[in-house]
């Protein structure tokens, strides 16, 4: 899966476009989704998301996605689950402090964010994870935040 994950970071630019497109489609579908009920949709959405994002990004399904702001690299793959940037332990070759054979997630994220011109969004201070959202659909959550019907 490492190969796919790295491919995703290298192709962050158009993947981000696809992602933005998906958000747009979801917001178009919102009246229907709302009628069906977000809670009822959460499980199937989370299942699809888990497969797609799991395959492309090794997503850990935290339920509060930052991919668009972290260069399409899932920060939850960081062994310290750091969501705001690399720790000081990154090795000189860019390897992770804890898993030396793995490139630091944030080395990838920085590379990816430059590709999508997201040097600004990587500066957004990410709140700590809400552990209650783990395994739930981040897409639906993002949609509900966008249309203003969620906390």
């Amino acid at each position: 899966m490492k190969a796919v994950r790295l491919w995703s970071v290298r192709n962050a630019r158009w993947l981000k476009k696809v992602y933005d497109g998906l958000e747009w489609i979801l917001s178009l579908l919102n009246p229907i989704l709302r009628r069906i009920g977000y809670d009822r949709l959460d499980k199937p959405f989370a299942a699809v998301e888990g497969v797609v994002k799991g395959f492309l990004f090794d997503s850990q399904s935290c339920g509060q996605c930052t991919l668009g702001e972290t260069g399409m690299a899932c920060p939850m793959n960081c062994p310290k689950t750091l969501r705001n940037g690399p720790c000081g332990g990154v090795r000189q070759n860019g390897g992770c402090e804890i898993k030396p054979e793995m490139t630091c997630v944030w080395v990838n994220a920085w590379e990816g964010s430059q590709q999508i011109g997201a040097e600004q969004t990587i500066q957004i201070i990410q709140a700590p994870v809400d552990n209650r959202l783990k395994g739930r659909s981040a897409w639906l959550r993002a949609l509900r935040i966008k249309v203003g019907s969620a906390s």
Binding site: G85, P86, N93, C104, W106, V107, W110, I125
Partner: peptide
């Protein structure tokens, strides 16, 4: 520590 270019931005953050 790498990514070196990111380090000043991280401090800004």
């Amino acid at each position: 520590a790498p990514p070196l270019d990111f380090r000043p931005h991280r401090m800004a953050k």
